[in-house]
Amino acid sequence: MIALLHSLADRQWHHGYDLMKDTGLLSGTLYPLLIRMSEQDLVEAEWREPAMTGRPARHAYRLTQKGMALVQDLARNDPALSGKAVRI
């Protein structure tokens, strides 16, 4: 979860596959995490139009205010997170 928070800490929209590559998590770990974080209102999701025609719309994710508050809370003890959180 820390790795995922680290990837999402820039508060930009990210696609699921990009998050997988960024965090090194497998899809079987990433999606249950995203689902749980979304249910806890830490992450918000929205459908984005595909970059290529003929492809389905993709889900994009970013941290909510509550998620950002958690990142900032964790950043006090994690220098890696604080590096990103400062830029927000």
Partner: peptide, 13 residues
């Protein structure tokens, strides 16, 4: 919706 989200990412995979 999550199932559709995973399916949409399948093309990227």
């Amino acid at each position: 919706e999550w199932a559709q989200a995973m399916l949409a990412e399948f093309d990227a995979a």
